[in-house]
């Protein structure tokens, strides 16, 4: 049997095992009293041993099958140690779980393909928002909002103490990623939502710089409905992986 064919046909060891069971028209429970183990081992035996990454996954299950088979050969199977999981039960459980997943995946694929037949328009091109800041929000307002948050941070003890210089826990890059992730989950955020509950000055600064970077590159928009209203952040065109140079990254 040609492994390259197998590799494309099966999504992994559980998939291979399940299709062998299906072919033999067996119940999952009967897997260990059948020829399935030897069939499985034969197929795995012919796999290209050089492709360690994918073969190792098949090998793990092969080892499990051999363990189960060998336990069955013992006249008196060793009783399970406390906390030890019955390998038979575990494998059957995993196969059942995978079988359910396959069905769910098929349902989802069908729904997906059905819905792909609904075509959506691209946004109207002449409605363009080129401005980083809209008419009703100025850099001053944005900085005012920043200092408002900053003021909420308790002033650190000003007495000189020995301090350790730690590596930055927050970088502009990581904060930019966090903002993108938040916007993916919730397309419209209040400015204050960007900060965690117990934010430090460090996090605050990095987040604010990240926000400015994202505005500059047109990834997000900031709007304010009226003076002193909360500033809302919205996704415009989020980049997945940026290649910007950030101010806090020594190069």
């Amino acid at each position: 049997m040609d492994y390259t064919v197998n590799q494309q046909a099966f999504e992994g060891p559980l998939d291979l095992l399940l299709s062998l069971i299906e072919k033999a028209e067996l119940d999952i429970e009967d897997i260990f009293i059948s020829e399935i183990t030897s069939q499985y081992l034969a197929i795995v035996g012919e796999m290209d041993a050089c492709d360690m990454d994918s073969v190792s996954e098949f090998m793990t299950v092969a080892a499990q099958l051999i363990l189960i088979k060998s336990r069955r050969l013992l006249p008196k199977p060793q009783p399970l140690q406390e906390g030890e999981i019955d390998p038979e039960k575990e494998l059957i459980e995993r196969l059942r779980e995978y079988q359910k997943l396959k069905l769910e995946s098929m349902e989802l694929t069908q729904l997906y393909l059905e819905n792909a037949k609904s075509v959506v328009r691209k946004p109207e091109e002449h409605i363009k928002i080129d401005n980083v800041y809209t008419d009703d929000i100025s850099p001053e307002q944005l900085s005012a909002a920043f200092f408002e948050v900053l003021n909420r941070v308790k002033d650190e003890d000003s007495a000189p103490v020995a301090r350790r210089v730690r590596q930055d826990a927050f970088t502009v890059r990581s904060c930019a990623k966090k903002i993108r992730d938040m916007l993916k989950a919730k397309p419209r955020l209040a400015f204050t939502e960007l900060f965690s509950d117990n934010y430090s000055r460090e996090e605050l600064t990095a987040t604010f710089l990240a926000l400015l970077e994202l505005l500059k590159h047109g990834e997000i928009r900031a709007t304010q409905s009226r003076p002193f209203a909360p500033i809302m952040i919205r996704a415009k065109e989020l980049n997945e992986n940026d290649d910007y140079t950030y101010i806090d990254e020594a190069d």
Binding site: L18, I21, E22, E25, L26, D27, I28, R96, Q99, K100, L103, E104, E107, L108, Q110, L111, Y112, E114, N115, S118
Partner: peptide, 20 residues
């Protein structure tokens, strides 16, 4: 997927996967 909430995901019933 053209659905309005996760509740509208197609359900896979337990009896569908009892036996192969």
């Amino acid at each position: 997927l053209g659905i309005s909430s996760l509740d509208e995901l197609p359900r896979v019933e337990a009896e569908d996967f009892g036996t192969v």
